[in-house]
Amino acid sequence: MEVRTIKVFTTVDNINLHTQVVDMSMTYGQQFGPTYLDGADVTKIKPHNSHEGKTFYVLPNDDTLRVEAFEYYHTTDPSFLGRYMSALNHTKKWKYPQVNGLTSIKWADNNCYLATALLTLQQIELKFNPPALQDAYYRARAGEAANFCALILAYCNKTVGELGDVRETMSYLFQHANLDSCKRVLNVVCKTCGQQQTTLKGVEAVMYMGTLSYEQFKKGVQIPCTCGKQATKYLVQQESPFVMMSAPPAQYELKHGTFTCASEYTGNYQCGHYKHITSKETLYCIDGALLTKSSEYKGPITDVFYKENSYTTTIK
């Protein structure tokens, strides 16, 4: 009895394709271990004539594949690729409408935090270190965002349907971005203890939790000093293409032309909904596939993004 075979390709990165001759009487799992086709788990399936010449994702289970996976995804987590594939199996079914010149995501599976993050990423200057993220990001900007969303979920250790947080998501993504040249110098002034300067680099240099107003941050924000008295913390120097200011959701007025974009969060910790506000020729609110415009805006804002380049204080 002759062994019926077909020729397929296996890959971990969709760049390096490895030619395989597979036995049609055995499952993919018996031949390769966990195997995925377009995100779908085909591990328990036997090869079919229609699979001839198709590319299958496999887990990096030998040295060659491990090197290829690390170079593309910059992670050695053995569960990463499987999590990416199972997320992709959902995100490829989502709709990605162009809204006001940006790629958004039609609401499904509690994905409003991903839509808000995706919209924000198209408006701030950011370059990702893992080629996987950078490639998928370019495709997302062009309207094909399924891979990018699935990668975000995998890097953030999230599953489809789980509630997510924009600030946490951005923080994970910033860790995989090139923020080497970003720098922030802060000064804390206390009447009792004097003053202390701190220099922050990388992710810490672009994120701040405690106030939404970048102007206020430049002037000074009140913080408790270690001595128990009130101290003032203010920005001395900022070198970065953008800054992200966050605070627990509270009524906040966004003035046209003073910011790049913002995240609105309605609801409580267990259950809520994100919308995205962007400042173009007027203010726009993007909620999944829905767009509304207004000249002014007041609502429960939790993150505001500002364009920056270089700032030095005039406070002496």
Rank of each mutant, 00 (worst) to 15 (best):
S86P: 01
V8T: 06
E52S: 11
K229F: 07
P249D: 06
K158T: 05
V8D: 05
E264H: 06
N61Y: 11
G29C: 08
M207V: 10
K46E: 15
T292D: 10
Q251L: 15
V188L: 10
K275N: 00
P241M: 07
Q122I: 01
V236I: 09
A145M: 05
E296D: 13
N16H: 05
K44A: 12
K46Q: 09
Y214S: 05
G210L: 07
G202A: 05
T169I: 15
K233L: 11
S25A: 14
Q195K: 12
A117D: 03
S294F: 14
S263N: 15
Q222F: 13
F259V: 05
V166G: 00
A205Y: 01
N309R: 10
G288D: 05
F56S: 01
S295R: 13
L254R: 03
A115D: 00
N187V: 10
L59P: 08
F148C: 04
Y284N: 08
L119F: 01
K298V: 11
S50T: 11
P248W: 03
A177V: 09
E2Y: 09
T314I: 14
C182F: 07
S86H: 15
L283P: 07
Y274V: 07
Y208P: 04
Y297H: 15
Y137L: 13
L290F: 11
L283A: 06
D180Q: 14
C271P: 11
I152V: 10
Y297Q: 04
C271H: 14
G210C: 06
D165H: 14
N187Q: 10
V12H: 15
S50P: 08
W94N: 00
C156I: 14
L114S: 01
R141T: 13
K307P: 13
L186T: 11
Q238D: 03
V58N: 05
Y84D: 00
P241I: 00
D77T: 02
T120F: 07
E264G: 15
G267N: 10
S246Y: 03
Y113Q: 06
V185N: 04
A262P: 03
F217Y: 06
V243P: 07
P97T: 10
A140H: 02
T302C: 15
S295M: 14
K7P: 11
Q195V: 13
E71M: 15
D77H: 06
L37K: 12
K298M: 10
Q98D: 13
F217V: 08
K44R: 11
L121S: 04
P300L: 12
N89M: 15
T159L: 12
Y113A: 03
P224S: 13
G143Q: 01
D287Y: 04
T43D: 06
T159C: 14
E168N: 02
F242G: 04
R141E: 09
P249V: 14
A177R: 01
P47R: 01
L254Q: 06
M207A: 08
G39W: 03
K218V: 07
W107C: 15
P130W: 01
G299M: 06
L291E: 09
D23M: 10
N157R: 06
S240W: 01
N61G: 13
Y274R: 04
V243F: 05
T198V: 09
G257A: 07
A247V: 05
Y73G: 01
A231R: 06
L118T: 02
Q134G: 07
A140I: 09
T314F: 08
R167L: 05
G202H: 08
H51V: 00
D13M: 00
I105C: 02
D62I: 11
Q134I: 11
V304E: 07
T292C: 11
L200S: 09
G210F: 04
H273D: 07
P60M: 10
V221S: 06
R184H: 03
A108D: 15
Y208F: 07
N147P: 15
A146E: 05
Y214H: 06
K275D: 03
R4E: 13
N129F: 06
H256G: 10
Y96Q: 01
N157L: 00
C227L: 03
V8C: 09
A140N: 04
P130N: 06
Q197K: 09
T313I: 08
F70C: 11
F305L: 06
Q30G: 08
C227S: 02
E125C: 07
K293G: 07
E71N: 15
Q30A: 12
A154Y: 00
Y208E: 03
S86Y: 10
T314K: 15
I105P: 03
Y234D: 02
G39N: 06
P300R: 15
H74I: 00
H90V: 11
G202D: 06
T11C: 03
T211F: 11
L119Q: 05
T75F: 05
K293D: 07
V243Q: 05
R139K: 13
S104Y: 00
H256W: 08
V42E: 04
A262T: 00
I105G: 00
A40P: 04
Y297L: 06
T314N: 13
Y73H: 01
L65H: 10
R167C: 10
T43S: 11
Q195I: 13
L151M: 07
P131H: 02
Q270V: 04
Q134M: 03
Y234E: 02
Y72F: 09
T292L: 08
T312A: 13
Y155E: 00
A87M: 12
N110K: 08
A145L: 05
G272S: 08
Y252Q: 14
L151V: 00
C182G: 06
L235H: 03
V206W: 06
K7D: 14
N100H: 06
V67M: 14
L133F: 00
V22P: 09
L133A: 02
E296K: 14
P34I: 12
T76V: 08
G161D: 05
F174A: 09
Y269K: 15
E2T: 11
V3E: 13
V42Y: 13
L65W: 08
K106P: 02
L81Y: 15
A262C: 02
H48E: 10
H18K: 14
F259Q: 04
L37N: 11
D41N: 14
N111K: 01
K307A: 14
L290H: 15
R4N: 13
S246K: 05
H74D: 07
Q195Y: 11
K46A: 10
K92G: 05
E144M: 11
A136L: 01
A132W: 02
S171I: 09
Y155N: 01
P224T: 11
A69H: 11
G33T: 01
Q230R: 10
G164F: 03
T55P: 07
E308T: 08
L126E: 00
E215K: 06
F259I: 07
F56I: 05
M244Y: 06
M24E: 15
D165I: 09
